[in-house]
């Protein structure tokens, strides 16, 4: 589905990603874990075309996308829920969802997906005329994920969806990530600091440190890896 080959990204003179290689197969949940400032968000922003890829290749189903503009990448079915949710605070919940479907023209499909996200998160249906900024953190995360789903993505990029949320809400969010993956066969690339939860729902995982991938393995093996346990699982 998606392949990063020797991807390098820099902010001015700061090299944020150095030769990142990773592969995500269709239908998988793959997680990327790492400490603060390791380069997780930069990886997603590079895939989405927001931050330019300095060197290397990003292949989506074999097609090079590293030089495409962000809207073209969305049109190819890659959607991101960025860190911090980025809700359009002054727009209503409904308008936020409509913007998720900005590039779509199939009215019937959009309506169907609207009902689908309302069924996943009934609270959003209840609050649909309320402005996005008035929602709680958990509700905003639900809205951000729903907005991405409204684009009917083939590959969903999630940046720390559990950040700042209560444990019960986190559990709910992770269950829904699993459900989206199962029911719609949506491929998911999940960036997390919450390594424990992430590795439990993922098929495979990568560990990033200082802009380099230092480990790649199946999720089970990473959970039992002593280095990972010490550094990221607090065991």
């Amino acid at each position: 589905m998606l392949e990063l080959k020797n991807v390098q990204t820099s902010y001015g003179n700061i090299q944020a990603l150095q030769d990142v290689n990773l592969t995500i197969h269709a239908g998988e949940i793959v997680t990327l874990i790492g400490a603060n400032g390791a380069g997780k968000s930069t990886t997603l922003m590079t895939i989405s075309g927001i931050v330019p890829c300095r060197r290397g290749k990003i292949l989506l189903k074999g097609q090079e996308i590293q030089a495409l503009s962000p809207d073209k990448i969305v049109a190819l079915g890659v959607c991101q829920v960025p860190e911090g949710r980025h809700i359009f605070a002054d727009l209503t919940v409904r308008e936020n969802l409509d913007l998720g479907a900005f590039l779509r023209t199939d009215k019937a499909g959009i309506k169907q997906d609207l009902e689908y996200v309302y069924s996943l998160f009934p609270i959003l249906a209840e609050r649909r005329h309320q402005s996005g900024g008035t929602l709680s953190g958990g509700q905003q995360q639900m809205l951000a994920m729903s907005r991405a789903l409204m684009a009917r993505p083939q590959l969903l990029l999630l940046d720390e969806p559990s950040m700042g949320l209560a444990p019960l809400v986190i559990k709910q969010i992770f269950e829904i990530i699993k459900a989206i993956n199962k029911e719609h066969n949506t491929t998911i690339f999940l960036v997390e600091q919450n390594a424990h939860q992430a590795l439990h729902i993922a098929d495979r995982g990568y560990v990033i440190e200082n802009g380099r991938i230092i480990l790649a393995d199946s999720a089970d093996k990473l959970l039992n890896n002593p280095d990972v346990q010490k550094a990221y699982l607090g065991i």
Binding site: P70, C79, G100, F102
Partner: peptide, 9 residues
């Protein structure tokens, strides 16, 4: 940034 991420040119 978010406008770009929903596919707005």
């Amino acid at each position: 940034t978010m406008a770009l991420l929903v596919g707005i040119n």
